[in-house]
Each structure stands twice: as structure tokens, then as C-alpha cells.
Simulated scan of single mutants.
Amino acid sequence: MALPHDSNETSYLLPPNNEDWGRQTIPDFVYGQKDLMAEGIQWPRNAPGIPDALPQSPFDAALCSAWKQRVELGLFRYRLRELQTQILPGAVGFVAQLNVERGVQRRPPQTIKSVRQAFDPVQFNFNKIRPGEVLFRLHREPDLPGTLLQEDILVVINVSPLEWGHVLLVPEPARQLPQRLLPGALRAGIEAVLLSLHPGFRVGFNSLGGLASVNHLHLHGYYLAHRLPVEQAPSEPLDPGGHLHLLQDLPAPGFLFYTRGPGPDLESLISRITGHQPDQLQV
């Protein structure tokens, strides 16, 4: 089971006195190979609501409890209510949500002039967030396979949430990396999905020019209690091994990458994807 360093139990909650938040050490969420091997995760017959309604992994429990506390402490720009959601008519069945407060109260996006724009420390970045916005740090145990450089990933709240549990996965913010998908960041995103028992936990990346609003490397993660059309779209294999597919019957073209799980297959998949970086990616 995933555990913090040097402890059998941890709390991802902030202390009562906000003056202590900056002095509190960021808790580690440490995970290993066995935490990524859950099987049989399926949508229930009745679509779930918030993640509390379904069995939770240690990752889900840590994220949801810490996120809920930050809501109660008023650290978000607005309090997320139940969103008006509709499945649009038509063959595709798009999921549409109305989130007026995000449109009005979110931080204005940065001006993006190039997909290769350099990091600008003067602009807003994740080194400028309040201490209370950090939930925990994702840390891989040494037993996990892989040749990619180990990176600690901060899990922080998105103060203008799209949905319940909306967080940002930020790889080592002090390195001041621009918003370009790197192998370590992609691996962290895929492993975050594998750490969750909720079928609607999503991780996505949008590039500069692909609606990214902050030029500081990050991925999004949140719970969406609805199946998406891409989950059931047919696909055509493009390579003999069946690792690369072309999605079909969707309004926009897309690729499906398949892997059996953590290990050499996943490392190869990550290298393949980051060698041909898409503007937007969801897993």
C-alpha cells in the first residue's frame, strides 16, 4: 500500500493555524509497483457522483480528503457547486457542462505567441502559489521499473476548478520548465490514473497554443462522473504489435496508445508519445 516516508499513517490536511502552513513539510505520497496493478475498474450501473460514492484507493482518499479541506478553508476562487451537465444529442454524445464561475473568476490566461515559448519567471507560475494549495508530493518507490529520471511531482489544487477534485500535477516547479510534455511528466500522469480506483479520474495535458493558460509544466487531473465518447470509440491498429491505433468515428482525429501496464512497455510508450508531442492529451 502507498505510504508516506517513515510512517504507517499520514495526514494530508493542513494544520488549524494558517500561520503554520508555510512551515509544514509537504507530505509525500509514496507508491510502488503493486499500487499500479488494480484490475476490474468499471463504471457502475448508475453513474457515480463525487468520488466518495465509490471504493477509493489510498491515492483517491488522500486527494479527496485534502481537496475537500481546502474547499472548506476557502482556498479556491469560488466554491464549486453541482454543475449543470447534459449529454448532447447526436451520434457522438458529447458531455457538456456549464461552469459560469470559472469563466468569470479564473486567472486571465497568459499571452502565448509560440508553442516553444520560454518560461518567464515574471509571469504567474507554480512557484508563486500559496503553501496551502499544495496537497502532497508524488514519489515513486525504487522498486518501480524504468530508465526515466526520477521526478517528484507536486499535486496542487486548481483554484479555478473544472470539476470535483481538480488538481494540477507539477513536476519539480523549481526547475522552471515551460509547458512542453516531457517523459517524466507523462509517466506521472499515466501512473496517477493507475493509482485511482475511480473510472472517471482523468488526467490531461494541453500545450501552448492548445488552450494552456500558464507556461509552466503541469498536467490536469480531476474526477468526471460521466463516460466520454473517446472511451468507446472504435480504433484501427496502425502497427503489428497493436500499441498504436487510430481512433475512428470522432469529430477530430486522434491516436490511441496501448500498454499492458507498468514496465518496459510503458517506458517505450512514453518515449514514443513524447517524441511526437500532441497539442492535447487525455488518459
Rank of each mutant, 00 (worst) to 15 (best):
L208H: 05
R77C: 03
Q232G: 14
A185E: 06
H166A: 06
A38W: 06
R106E: 10
L269R: 08
G210H: 06
T147I: 05
E172S: 14
L269F: 10
L181Y: 08
D279V: 00
L63Y: 01
L148R: 14
L83N: 08
L182I: 12
L194V: 01
R202E: 08
F76Y: 15
Q232W: 00
Q176C: 14
Q69N: 05
P4L: 04
R260D: 14
L228V: 08
V230W: 12
R79A: 12
E191R: 14
L197K: 14
L148V: 02
H5Q: 02
L80K: 11
E101Q: 15
D52M: 00
L80R: 11
A212T: 03
L219F: 06
G93Y: 07
S160T: 06
A185P: 02
E163H: 10
G275M: 03
G204R: 00
V122Y: 02
D249Q: 15
E19R: 10
L154P: 00
Q105K: 15
L247Q: 09
P199C: 03
L238H: 02
F29N: 04
S57L: 12
S196K: 04
P240R: 11
D152H: 13
G275W: 03
R116A: 11
G261P: 04
L149Y: 02
L88E: 15
G241W: 08
Y31R: 08
R140V: 09
